[in-house]
Design a protein around this nucleic acid. Structure first.
Length: 534
RNA sequence: GGGCCUGUAGCUCAGUCAGGUAGAGCGUCGGACUUUUAAUCCGAUGGUCGCGGGUUCGAACCCCGUCAGGCCCGCCA
């Protein structure tokens, strides 16, 4: 059974109504690692709905978290906001990346909005539409009031849980509430007393004050904030990264604190990280990232979904924006054309085979942008489209080629969309070299020397034929095989010779349309030089 | 130091929970397509299941140990 269906089935044993949650801190540019968080949750939510459960899928935006430091993508003026909540400070402004006070004051446009909005747009395109829970607003609206009171009343119990489970010692003045100081920062504030609903404090400037825990004048520390959310929202299942999932991590303390707060801990689903192939783990601060938005400009959303659907959550994904993406995309096409039901009804099918077919079927179902959407193959592989996009200058020429070869009747919107992404991909640094069409500028002697006498002879005839040939795709296309036929050889020898001379390869893509797009004089010079060498 | 995850074909991974003849895709190789050849179709190739013990009629799977990689026990998807 597919991992999402397994998890959904396990959820069904707990009850019929579920709140499946995910959460991310909008501290910087989102990357596809974050996409795994939310897609894991989305797929689980869909699987649970398919299993007949009543599901509310939510995305908690941790806008109450403080700015930790002045990241490399921020202007120096952000120094003043360290420790301030992401949903309460201005966004970086285009240009100098310093705080955009104007938009902040006029529209209330915050740091959190700035990073969240493009991510939400990408999510919509990928078919993920969770209910958004803004954490800062929830605090301000008093949603945390009851849990915050319980936590502060049980400060000693919570301290005991965290110290025991994470085997870490808490400071003597530790308190389960982080008040905002006189300047709006959560850093360097010492709690001096508590009398519901007020927490008394003294800040790093020596200022004293009080914080009302029912009105969001501060927040719960992360390890309590999380279970408190589970409690007031009623979360029954949450997908989270392996960092939270390890023994002693925040889930381990969270589940005990959750019980203390009177809420049954949610069913966990821990997932592994995504790294960029050859570049190690994704990290916003090192700039080693690829955003969901950029990934979407390369491939259609279904393929991004397949990336997640195809890997069990506990498997690390090494995201490859080069050949790996071609393989993934072609696999998606293949899945679309398969008839799973007839495959499964085959006689004498092994249990192992059956599992494989089931998983493939489920992965495809979960890869659809719209739940329940029927997969339709485009009948044009990524590989083939990459080739066409490189050899034809206009889109119309590509559709013409595909129609005349019988691959399609007309360019669908899906195909047009795919071609657009393909053209962007080809122009990007991610496009793999081995897919790129390269016509040599000087002869490749090694490739030429591998030709046999027959092929060498054909090369000369071919060169002569092309000299006299009209320079269009059709004429070139007939001149190449004809050169071999004139010498009573198989057309294959002409192609073999042409690839060796023009590209230094044994085989390659359709030559005629490529040559037709190129300068005849340049090609003929290359071929003439080759003829002199053989 | 304590704990979690991962290790299966050249590559990406199923299969481990409920032990029963080692699987898929990609790649590679071969064939077919005689004006196309990175396409498509057909076929083949490929693994001491990290290593060592144990339990069992039987172990990739269960148990013990061990090696390697990643991660957690401040913050992090």
């Amino acid at each position: 059974m597919h991992w999402a269906d397994v998890a959904a089935k396990s959820l069904s044993h707990r009850g019929d109504t579920h709140v499946i949650s995910t959460g991310i801190t909008p501290s910087g540019e989102f990357h596809i690692g974050h996409l795994r968080e939310i897609l894991t949750g989305d797929m689980l939510a869909r699987a649970a709905k398919d299993a007949g459960l009543d599901v509310d899928f939510i995305f908690i935006v941790d806008s109450a978290d403080p700015l930790r430091k002045v990241y490399s993508f921020l202007g120096p003026e952000f120094e003043q906001f360290i420790g301030h909540q992401l949903g309460a400070i201005p966004a970086p402004k285009e240009g100098d990346n310093n705080p955009d006070w104007q938009r902040f004051n006029e529209e209330g446009w915050t740091y959190a909005d700035h990073f969240l909005t493009p991510f939400m747009d990408a999510l919509a395109e990928i078919g993920v539409r969770p209910r958004i829970v803004d954490n800062l607003r929830s605090y301000q609206d008093g949603k945390f009031a009851q849990q915050a009171k319980l936590a502060c009343d049980s400060a000693d119990d919570i301290r005991e849980i965290i110290e025991r489970v994470s085997s870490r010692e808490l400071a003597s003045d530790w308190f389960p509430w982080s008040p905002l100081d006189s300047k709006g920062s959560l850093d360097g504030v010492k709690v001096t007393g508590y009398e519901y609903p007020l927490v008394y404090w003294i800040d790093s400037h020596g200022v004293e004050g009080s914080s009302d825990i029912t009105k969001g004048q501060g927040k719960l520390p992360w390890r309590i904030d999380w279970p408190a959310k589970w409690s007031w929202i009623g979360v029954t299942c949450e997908a989270f990264g392996k960092d939270h999932g390890a023994a002693g991590g925040s889930y381990a303390t969270g589940r005990e604190i959750s019980t203390l707060l009177g809420h049954e801990p949610p069913q966990p689903l821990t997932y592994e990280w995504i790294s960029l192939r050859g570049k190690g783990a994704m990290s916003s601060s090192s700039g080693n990232t690829i955003g969901p938005i950029e990934a979407l400009r390369l491939v259609p959303p279904q393929i991004l979904r397949l990336l997640i659907a195809n890997s069990k959550p506990n498997k690390a994904i090494d995201f490859d924006t080069g050949m790996g993406l071609v393989t993934l995309a072609d696999e998606f096409e293949r899945l679309c054309t398969r008839d799973f039901d007839s495959e499964m009804s085959e006689e004498d099918i092994s249990r192992r085979k059956l599992v494989q077919i089931e998983d493939a079927k489920a992965a495809l179902r979960l890869s659809m942008v719209e739940p329940g959407e029927i997969a339709k193959a485009t009948s044009v592989s990524f590989r083939h489209l990459a080739l066409l996009a490189q050899t034809k200058s206009s889109d119309d020429a590509i559709w013409q080629s595909l129609v005349s070869s019988g691959a399609i009747n007309e360019p669908t919107k899906q195909l047009q969309d795919r071609l657009e992404r393909m053209r962007y991909w080809i122009s990007s640094e991610h496009f793999p070299e081995e897919m790129r069409i390269n016509i040599l500028s000087t002869p490749n002697e090694q490739a030429l020397s591998s030709l046999d006498d027959e092929q060498k002879a054909v090369l000369k005839g071919l060169t002569a034929a092309l000299h006299n040939c009209q320079w269009d795709s059709e004429s070139i296309g007939s001149a190449i095989p004809q050169a071999a036929k004139d010498l009573e050889f198989s057309p294959r020898s002409a192609y073999r010779a042409a690839y060796a001379a023009l590209m230094g390869l044994e085989k390659g893509p359709r030559l005629a349309p490529i040559l037709a797009e190129m300068d005849k004089v340049q090609i003929m010079n290359l071929l003439d030089s080759c003829c002199q060498l053989v």
